[in-house]
Amino acid sequence: MDLRQMEVVVAVAEEGGFSAAARRLHIVQSAVSGTVRTLERELGAPLFHRTTHRVSLTAAGAAFLPAAQATLRAAEEARAAVDLAQGELRGEITIGVMQGLYAGLAPALAGFHREHPGVTVRLRQKPAGRIPQCLRDGVLDLAVAALDATQLRGLTTRLLAREEMVLVSAPGPAPARAAADRPVRTLAETERPVTTLAEVARLPVVGFPPGWAIRQAVDRTFRTASLEYSATFEVNDIMAAADLVRHGLGVSIMPPSMAAWFPELPTRPFAAHAPTWTLRLVHTRAEQPPAVTALLRHIG
């Protein structure tokens, strides 16, 4: 058994398939399959259930995966220690992010890269709900995400920003049709500099999937207010949401930092009880590799 075999198995497990693992590792799929079969013969147990449509871990694979991930991290830390002793940082850092980057992240990465050009940084978009477990499993080294305090047990956090979300609408009148059991209310009828949750509840909304930080904050706020809203469209991309809003298919609720990407779309704050998200820098409490420690100093 060697590190390369472990790397291939980890890639298959994390990417959910042999083709995706091959793309991640920049090798052909047959090499991935062959490496996994060789290791399975060596271990005397199958690591994956293989079907036409999906690949999943067997019990043996589930036992093997965390040990392999820990071994790969240890090997990376050993290489990083040698590089540090020679006065140069190398290695890889994987950062979990949501749709849309925290405004301070790109400048921080630019400064870090100027100081440590030998470190490869990978950004991985993930739903906010999955990020804490990915950190605990070692899939991510750190994350910049909007997470609730209940999701942060066992993790170290640093506050980066707190935003009250705003209503984003089309430049013209609001959509002409709401849910069948709600009276239609156009934005022109409520043409005030602010809006309310009750007004939004009577409009069709372009929303986001469960697990997204925006969705979590919006759902929580409406539940607290004993209100329901109608998600006429659900998308997993901020750009797509803005495009649907632009064509009059609904309004959307976003953090102002994201709404600012679309200056042609009018925004209005909430008069009270606005959905709020809190952006945090998050990582495990364990001692970090030198490259991660260096990057943490740049993010603030």
Score class of each variant (00 low, 15 high):
Pro183Gln: 14
Leu155Ser: 06
Thr157Arg: 10
Ala180Ile: 01
Ile93Thr: 10
Ala45Val: 01
Arg24Thr: 07
Gln86Lys: 04
Leu167Ala: 12
Tyr102Trp: 13
Phe64Gln: 00
Gln125Pro: 04
Glu228Thr: 03
Ala271Gly: 14
Gly104Tyr: 05
Arg158Pro: 01
Phe262Trp: 10
His26Val: 00
Leu140Ala: 04
Val121His: 06
Glu228Arg: 10
Val144Ala: 03
Thr221Ala: 15
Asp141Val: 09
Thr52Glu: 14
Leu140Ser: 02
Phe112His: 03
Ser33Pro: 00
Phe262Tyr: 11
Arg182Leu: 02
Ala63Met: 04
Gln125Cys: 13
His116Cys: 07
Thr51Ala: 09
Val10Arg: 01
Ala80Arg: 10
Ala145His: 02
Arg162Trp: 11
Glu15Cys: 04
His113Thr: 04
Leu279Ala: 09
Gly17Asp: 12
Leu265Ile: 00
Pro204Asp: 05
Val8Gln: 07
Val36Asp: 04
Leu101Phe: 05
Phe18Ile: 03
Glu199Gln: 12
Glu189Met: 15
Ala81Met: 11
Met239Ile: 00
Phe270Val: 08
Ala80Leu: 08
Ala231Arg: 13
Leu279Asn: 10
Tyr229Cys: 03
Pro46Asp: 15
Pro290Ser: 05
Arg220Pro: 02
Ala106Glu: 15
Thr293Asp: 15
Ala59Pro: 14
Ala217Thr: 07
Leu109Gln: 09
Arg162Glu: 15
Val9Pro: 00
Ser252Pro: 00
Leu135Arg: 05
Ala31Gly: 11
